[in-house]
Amino acid sequence: MPIDPGFWVLQTLNALQLSMLLFLLSVGLTVIFGLMHFVNLAHGSLYALGAYVAATVAGLAGFGAGVVVAPLAVATLGAALYFLLIRRMRRAGPMAQVLVTFGLIFVAMDVTRMFWGDLPMGISVPAWLNGQLDFLGIEYPAYRILIIVLGLITLAALTLVLTRTQVGAMIRAGVDNDQMAACLGINVERMFFIVFVVGCALAGLAGAIAAPVLAISPDMGLQILIPTLIVIVIGGLGSLKGAIAGSLIFGFVQTFGAVLAPSLASILIYALLAAVLVLRPAGLFPTKG
């Protein structure tokens, strides 16, 4: 095993990159859970859709356009889903909502196959993102730096909105006790809608960002679903802090597991998940209520 410090910096960046990608996905899912108390299993499908839309738009108008259009398109679909299914299911209990979104996974997977075919697709990034950046004397792919930066910006923006703005205060009130919040005159229904749509947009953004480094295939949503669920369950459902902690834990365990104990790499994260749930049955940062 090399002892070169640059090697460990590189691996740390790799871990951060994976963490930030997962953070973009899990934060929407966890805040939706915190407010509405249900897990949208189709969140991974929205991510896949984001990747497909980004690929199509990028082919027509360039990568930048793809990254902008994908979250908007997915958010629009999210709005439609909200009015057609989610809102109607609000009183049906969390289990029913989970199952509806589970059914949606299968529908979404076949719909992407009908539109985009079975063969995996790929897109390229603009030349300025294609190279490597010199980072403290270490070369690291520019695109991976972009993912890290984008994740950090999203994190900062969300923290700011949630802690410093009125909307954020309303959302926090809703997470703590939605009935009380409604009594205080907060339009809970509208808040649910906004949070759901923003969560969908973030999933679409994650898909667009991941598209150039992964194969865009109909089952990419299913493949990312389990890692995302692990992240939010380790962190504790419904909490922003939990999503950050969960993403970082997942990214670092996966990366350093692959480096230090490759033969255990695929079991390590599940063992950790089981251990967390035994010791803290509601995750590391559970929300109250």
Partner: peptide, 28 residues
Amino acid sequence: AICARSHGIYFIMATLAFSQMGYSLVFE
């Protein structure tokens, strides 16, 4: 016994963790 303290989605995820561990073990 191990998952007994977890409920709802946490129980689902805990059982999933064991399921995936078993799968990886057998597969690899």
